[in-house]
C-alpha cells in the first residue's frame, strides 16, 4: 500500500476549479515532485493534505488513516511535516526554539507538569533537545542556533524551516518550493539534504518545485499539473519532454534548465 494515497480529489474556490479530479500516490521512501506553471494547483494540493482546505470530492489516505476525518492540527501527528512557499517561521523566537516547536507532536507532558517543571518534563525536554541537536548538526545550523529568526538571511530561514519539519521526525515531508530564492550553492546543498533525507533517514519526500535541475536531480517520479489537472506523470526526463507539458509552459519548447544538474 502507498504511504500517501490521494484519489480523485477536487477543490473549488467559488467558480474556479483549483484542483480537478487529481489522483496520485507517494510510495514509501520515494521523492515525488509536483511541477507545473504558477496557479496549476500544486501548493493547493499541499494545503489539502495539510487539511487547510476541504475538498469537494475525493479521498486522502495516509499510512492507513483517512486524513479527511481529521483536523489540520491532527495531521502532523500521523507523521506529515511541511514547509511553506513563503517561509512561515516563528519570527520572534530563536532557531532552537523554532525547531523545538517542530517537536510538538511528540509532546508527552501536560500543563501541570510543565508549570512545575516536573522531572518528567525535564526528561522530555532533554529528549527533545537531543533530537533537535541532531537536526542542527545535519543541516549545519550551529552558527545560527541562538539567533532570532527576524535577523536571519533568506537562505538560512529556508533551511531552518526544513529543520523544523525534520525535527518532528516525519514519515512524509512536504516541501513547498524548497529552492525558490536560493543561490546556486544553496540549491546544491538543498539537493544533497533531500537525497540524505530520503536515503539515510528513510523519509519520503513530496515537493513542489520550479527548478527542474533540482527536480531531475533528486526526484524518483514527477507529476506535471496545469489548471488543476494532471498533465503527465513519470520520471523527470519523460515529463519534461511530454508535449502537453511543453505546451503548458507557453510553448517555449523547453523547461527551465538552470540550477543544479548533477549526475
Amino acid at each position: 500500500m502507498s504511504l500517501l494515497d490521494i484519489q480523485n480529489i477536487t477543490l473549488k474556490f467559488g467558480g474556479l476549479v483549483a484542483v480537478d479530479n487529481v489522483s496520485l500516490a507517494v510510495e514509501k521512501g520515494e521523492v515525488f515532485a509536483l511541477v507545473g506553471p504558477n496557479g496549476a494547483g500544486k501548493s493547493t494540493i499541499f494545503n489539502l493534505i495539510s487539511r487547510f482546505y476541504d475538498p469537494v470530492a475525493g479521498t486522502i489516505r495516509f499510512d492507513g488513516h483517512d486524513l479527511l476525518q481529521n483536523a489540520a492540527d491532527q495531521v502532523p501527528g500521523f507523521g506529515i511535516a511541511r514547509t511553506f512557499q513563503n517561509i512561515e517561521l516563528f519570527e520572534q523566537a530563536t532557531v532552537l526554539q523554532n525547531l523545538l516547536v517542530g517537536r510538538h507532536r511528540h509532546r508527552q507532558t501536560g500543563l501541570l507538569s510543565n508549570i512545575v517543571f516536573s522531572p518528567k518534563a525535564y526528561r522530555e525536554e532533554v529528549r527533545h533537545r537531543e533530537a533537535v541537536e541532531e537536526v542542527i548538526d545535519f543541516l549545519n545550523l550551529q552558527p545560527y542556533r541562538d539567533k532570532m529568526i527576524g535577523g536571519l538571511p533568506y537562505g538560512v530561514r529556508k533551511v531552518v524551516e526544513l529543520g523544523r519539519a525534520l525535527a518532528s521526525e516525519p514519515k512524509l515531508l512536504l516541501l513547498d518550493e524548497p529552492a525558490s530564492g536560493l543561490s546556486v550553492e544553496e540549491t546544491q546543498d538543498m539537493a544533497f539534504w533531500i537525497e540524505d533525507i530520503q536515503t539515510q533517514m528513510g523519509i519520503s519526500v513530496m515537493m513542489v518545485e520550479h527548478d527542474m535541475g533540482l527536480v531531475s536531480a533528486v526526484s524518483d517520479r514527477v507529476m506535471a499539473l496545469s489548471d488543476g489537472k494532471e498533465l503527465a506523470m513519470g520520471i523527470a526526463t519523460e515529463v519534461q519532454s511530454h508535449p502537453a507539458v511543453i505546451e503548458a509552459y507557453l510553448g517555449t519548447g523547453e523547461v527551465s534548465k538552470t540550477g543544479t544538474s548533477r549526475a
Binding site: S50, F52, A71, A72, D73, Q74, V75, P76, G77, A81, R82, F84, E88, L89, F90, E91, Q92, A93, Q97, L100, V101, G102, R103, H104, R105, R107, T109, L111, N114, I115, V116, F117, A121, E124, E125, H128, R164, S168
Partner: peptide, 30 residues
C-alpha cells in the same frame, strides 16, 4: 511557574501561535 512554562512545550506553543497561526497548526498545535 511562568519561566517553567516558557522553557517547556506549553509556552512554546503559545509563542508559536503568536508568531504564525498557520505554522502552529501545521506543527500540530490545536
Amino acid at each position: 511557574f511562568y519561566r517553567n512554562l516558557l522553557r517547556t512545550p506549553t509556552g512554546r506553543s503559545f509563542t508559536a501561535i503568536r508568531d504564525s497561526e498557520i505554522s502552529a497548526r501545521a506543527m500540530g498545535i490545536n
